[in-house]
Amino acid sequence: MRRADRLFDIIQALRGQSQPTTAAVLAKRLEVTTRTIYRDVATLQARRIPIEGEPGVGYVLRKGFDLPPLMFTTEEVEAITVGARLVSRIRDPKLQEAAESVLSKLLQTVPKELRSQLTSPRFYVSEGDTVRPEGIELLDVRNAIRSCRKIRITYLDEQKKRTRRTIWPVATVYYVDVTLIAAWCELRRAYRHFRVDRIQKAEILDETFTADSSGMMVEWMATRAN
Rank of each mutant, 00 (worst) to 15 (best):
Thr21Ile: 15
Ile199Gln: 04
Glu31Thr: 08
Val25Tyr: 01
Lys201Ala: 15
Gln117Gly: 06
Ser101Asn: 12
Thr163Val: 11
Val176Gln: 11
Glu54Cys: 06
Thr34Arg: 10
Leu14Lys: 09
Arg48Ser: 15
Thr36Ile: 10
Thr43His: 07
Ile136Cys: 03
Ala4Gly: 05
Cys185His: 01
Asp40Arg: 01
Gly53Arg: 05
Tyr59Leu: 12
Glu207Cys: 03
Val173His: 04
Ala24Cys: 02
Arg39Phe: 10
Tyr124Arg: 08
Met216His: 04
Gly135Glu: 08
Ala84His: 01
Lys201Pro: 00
Ala183Trp: 03
Asp206Leu: 15
Thr81Gln: 06
Ile181Ala: 05
Glu203Leu: 15
Gly56Gln: 09
Arg47Lys: 14
Arg3Ala: 12
Ala171His: 06
Val176Gly: 00
Gly16Asn: 14
Ala202Ser: 15
Glu219Asp: 15
Arg35Glu: 15
Lys150Ile: 00
Leu139Ser: 01
Phe8Pro: 04
Ser214Trp: 02
Asp92Phe: 09
Asp206Tyr: 03
Ala46Phe: 07
Asp140Phe: 02
Ala98Trp: 05
Val82Glu: 05
Leu205Trp: 04
Leu114Arg: 01
Thr109Trp: 05
Thr33Cys: 11
Leu67Asn: 06
Arg3Trp: 01
Val178Lys: 02
Ser104Asn: 11
Gly53Ser: 06
Glu186Leu: 11
Gly128Met: 08
Gln159Ser: 09
Arg89Asn: 05
Ala190Met: 03
Ser104Asp: 14
Thr210Asn: 08
Ser126Glu: 15
Arg195Cys: 09
Ile151Trp: 02
Pro20Tyr: 05
Tyr59Arg: 07
Lys105Trp: 05
Ala211Asn: 03
Gln159Pro: 00
Glu158Trp: 02
Glu113Tyr: 07
Leu156Phe: 00
Gln200Ala: 14
Ile136Pro: 01
Ile204Ser: 04
Ile181Trp: 00
Arg198Lys: 13
Glu134Ser: 09
Ile10His: 04
Val82Ala: 07
Ala79Gln: 01
Ala42Gln: 13
Asp197Pro: 00
Met221Trp: 03
Glu207Pro: 01
Tyr38Leu: 12
Trp168Thr: 05
Val125Ser: 05
Thr119Leu: 13
Ile11Phe: 02
Gly64Cys: 13
Thr166Trp: 00
Leu187Val: 08
Gly83Pro: 02
Thr163Ile: 08
Trp184Cys: 11
Asp66His: 09
Asp177His: 03
Ile153Tyr: 00
Lys105Asn: 14
Ala144Asn: 04
Glu134Met: 09
Pro121Glu: 15
Leu187Gly: 03
Val60Leu: 13
Thr36Asn: 12
Thr208Ser: 10
Asn143His: 06
Asn226Trp: 11
Ile37Cys: 02
Gln45Leu: 10
Val196Trp: 06
Lys105Cys: 12
Met221Cys: 06
Thr179Lys: 00
Val176Asn: 07
Thr166Gln: 04
Ser104Phe: 07
Lys105Gly: 13
Glu54Val: 06
